[in-house]
């Protein structure tokens, strides 16, 4: 009995370990992971690394081009762009994380319920989500932010809700592919209730597509957040946000293009890192794509 237990745990362990081994082999994925780690560290330790506070204005040093004191230059009121990008990373990563948590919780449970129960429940949930899917995501987010007003939490909610349908669809499809298998029948026969079957037996078996989707959705959420801030609906000044920095710098592109260069590069690097990581994870976690 004892040896059987260890056997099973080793097997369980090696599933993730072999996925990690496969992930390590992919140079692109490791580059993405490293880049993302650097961005996260920069955001977490912003107050240690950043040479200036994000709202420190120095009116004697406005519009400075990149130099030794200000690596990325300064903006129209003399704030250090490098420091603002580091602090902006905090905002973007937080928005990405929380909005994906919202969509994975809401969309995931709806999709799981729809897939598991099928029939009328499935129809009701999925037809309702079809309505949300019929509205281009950014427009749905704009509508929600208009109703709630700008601000960080409202932005997270808007972006999270607008990607609920895509999560629900993926989780539903995955549940459908595993729910007819024997271990579900075994769990039911041993007296497990539906909630237990869904969360303890089905969900662990569909973690792979969910993890991939989380990574890729986070990239999308960060992009949406900066887009909404760019059109003035997201984070309000003086809190630094990459999209808002682009929007504020737009007026000066004729002479001081560095103001809009670096925030854009930061957005791009973050999205690129998450996309590379997500692609790598998909290849590593999906056994059908082995070989």
């Amino acid at each position: 009995m004892q040896s059987k237990q260890t056997d099973r745990s080793r097997k369980n362990y090696s599933l993730w370990l072999s996925a990690w081994k496969r992930l390590k082999k992919s140079r692109m994925a490791m580059f993405g992971l490293a880049l993302f780690a650097i961005i996260c560290l920069g955001a977490i330790f912003a107050d240690v690394i950043a040479p200036y506070p994000y709202d420190f204005q120095n009116l004697d040093e406005t519009f400075q081009f990149p130099n030794a004191n200000h690596w990325f230059g300064t903006d129209s009121v003399g704030r250090d762009i490098f420091s603002r990008i580091l602090y902006g990373g905090r905002v973007s990563l937080q928005i990405g994380l929380v909005s994906v948590l919202i969509s994975v919780t809401l969309g995931g449970s709806l999709g799981a319920i729809a897939g598991f129960y099928g029939g009328k429940t499935d129809n009701l949930i999925m037809r309702t989500l079809d309505i949300l899917l019929a509205i281009p995501a950014i427009l749905l987010a704009i509508t929600i932010v208009t109703a709630l007003g700008p601000g960080m939490f409202n932005l997270m909610l808007a972006i999270g809700v607008s990607s609920v349908p895509s999560f629900a669809r993926i989780v539903r499809a995955s549940i459908l592919s595993v729910k007819e298998q024997e271990f579900v029948e075994a769990a039911r026969l041993s007296g497990c209730n539906d909630a237990h079957i869904i969360f303890s037996h089905l969900v662990p078996n569909i973690m792979a597509p969910i993890i991939v989707q989380i990574t890729l959705s986070m990239a999308l959420a960060i992009l949406s957040a900066s887009s909404l801030s760019f059109i003035g609906l997201g984070i309000q000044p003086p809190i630094p946000e990459w999209g808002a920095m682009l929007s504020a710098g737009r007026a000066y592109i004729r002479n001081y293009s560095h103001i809009v260069l670096f925030p854009g590069l930061a957005i791009m690097a973050t999205i690129l890192s998450l996309n590379l990581l997500g692609d790598g994870l998909r290849d590593a976690l999906d056994p059908r794509l082995k070989n």
């Binding site: 692109m28 990239a219 992009l223 900066s226 887009s227 760019f230 999209g243 682009l246 737009r250 592109i253 004729r254 293009s257 809009v260 260069l261 925030p263 854009g264 957005i267 791009m268 999205i271 690129l272 996309n275 590379l276």
Partner: peptide, 22 residues
């Protein structure tokens, strides 16, 4: 295609304006 998927298009637009127009 990797880069293209990751570029925020409103930023690409600004960069093109700076380079091509200005």
């Amino acid at each position: 295609s990797l880069l293209g998927i990751s570029i925020p298009n409103f930023w690409l637009g600004l960069m093109l304006i700076i380079l091509v127009s200005l």
